[in-house]
């Protein structure tokens, strides 16, 4: 079973995403901000990370840049999942090492196709 870390400061979004991902047979863990996500990745690298952009303490993009410099940090497939929906943000995410990008609102179809495209499913 593949693991997915869901990083979002909204408890509701984490719950919805978790439900969708568990239906896709992912073992999920959660983090409320970038720093918690860093700690989780330091303990164990997940296969996938579903990542919000705007969060307190540490933003998603900052987390991603740090993750990609960590030992083993190039392994997880990172899928942004954010309300930021303009080209500039998407390009910034891709150049920071994101594998896919979901613009909120999302549904299970979108998560499924995006995860399939990066080879997680």
């Amino acid at each position: 079973m593949k693991s997915c870390l869901v990083v979002d400061d909204s408890r509701v979004v984490r719950k919805v995403a978790r439900k969708i991902l568990e239906e896709l047979h992912f073992a999920c863990s959660e983090a409320e901000d970038g720093r918690q996500a860093m700690e989780a990745c330091a303990r164990e690298m997940p296969h996938a990370i579903l990542l919000d952009w705007n969060m307190p303490v540490m933003t998603g993009i900052e987390f991603l840049r740090r993750l990609r410099k960590m030992s083993g940090g190039d392994a997880p497939k990172v899928v942004f999942c954010t309300t930021e929906n303009d080209l500039a943000h998407i390009q910034e995410a891709l150049s920071a090492g994101a594998n896919e990008y979901i613009m909120k609102p999302f549904d299970s179809d979108i998560i499924q196709t995006k995860f399939a495209q990066v080879g997680l499913i």
């Binding site: 390009q91 891709l94 196709t113």
Partner: peptide, 15 residues
């Protein structure tokens, strides 16, 4: 729509 371009289209191709 945003929904339509996210169904099946890889983000790199959207860009």
């Amino acid at each position: 729509t945003q929904f339509e371009v996210q169904r099946g289209l890889p983000i790199t191709q959207l860009v």
